[in-house]
């Protein structure tokens, strides 16, 4: 009887399978931050973002760019470094319960990645279309590019690699090698950022008009397809979770 009571107490005291606070805060972080970014664009896009030679452009947009570069490199270094430094060196000897708990944490990361991908690939990319069909660009670093290419893309890259690193360093199922589709779903969207080089080079020829379906943009399309790698990640996870839950669900 005493042993049973102790066991129940231990269960009650252990960490929950899903840390709901992290899940909600993680998603809210993107939503609230990007709501602020959108407010900033609305106010300073029109008032200070039309002429890249104007002093106010330097104040409100180029300084924004410099600050985000520093913060992104710092965040990536700290986050990826932390995940690697605190990796589990005995990952194959964890209990099934702990493995399940880590899978839920991994899904919190994937949820954040999905949210970040939405903002980068959908929200800020199509927004760029309407801005450049309205305002004739006179620089690579336009207000919409400073947000789209150099803020929202690095943010999903940082989140995606963090998610990948978490799985690789803490989950037994990912110790059999490097998950091909996981790499595709993270590295493919990452390649959209280097492809900005092609885009900006091309726009030095055709800066005056924006045509979103121009072949110049097809590099973004090709690497956008890699997002479908999430299907392989889901299937890999379902395999791992089936091993953990199958006999209890039978």
């Amino acid at each position: 009887m005493a042993a049973t009571t102790e066991s129940v107490k231990a269960d009650a005291a252990e960490a929950p399978l899903l840390n709901k606070r992290n899940l909600i805060l993680g998603v809210l972080l993107y939503v609230v931050f990007y709501a602020w970014v959108r407010w900033y664009e609305g106010v300073y896009g029109w008032s200070a973002g039309l002429d890249s030679f104007a002093p106010e452009f330097e104040t409100y947009w180029m300084n924004f760019l410099y600050i985000e570069f520093v913060l992104e490199v710092t965040t990536a270094g700290i986050l990826w470094g932390y995940l690697w430094k605190t990796r589990d060196r005995k990952v194959m000897s964890i209990t099934p319960r702990e493995e399940l708990r880590r899978h839920t944490t991994h899904w919190v990361w994937l949820t954040c990645y999905a949210t970040a991908i939405y903002y980068g690939a959908s929200y800020f990319t199509e927004q760029d279309g309407t801005w450049h069909q309205t305002i004739v660009r006179d620089t690579d670093f336009t207000p919409s590019h400073i947000i789209e290419f150099y803020l929202s893309y690095p943010i999903y890259i940082i989140t995606g690699f963090a998610s990948f690193l978490y799985a690789k360093t803490r989950l037994p199922h990912y110790q059999q090698g490097l998950s091909l589709q996981y790499m595709v779903s993270v590295i493919g969207p990452f390649m959209i950022l280097p492809n900005v080089g092609l885009n900006e080079w091309g726009h030095t020829f055709w800066f005056m008009e924006e045509l979103f379906v121009a072949p110049l943009h097809y590099g973004f399309v090709f690497f956008g397809w890699a997002a479908l790698g999430i299907l392989g990640v889901v299937n890999t996870e379902v395999q791992a979770l089936s091993k953990l839950l199958k006999k209890d669900l039978a």
Binding site: Y113, A114, I117, Y118, A121, T125, W225, I230, V233, V234
Partner: peptide, 12 residues
């Protein structure tokens, strides 16, 4: 995850 990642890839 499927909804929002596919949304992002499909939309771009």
């Amino acid at each position: 995850a499927i909804f929002f990642v596919v949304l992002g890839g499909y939309h771009i």
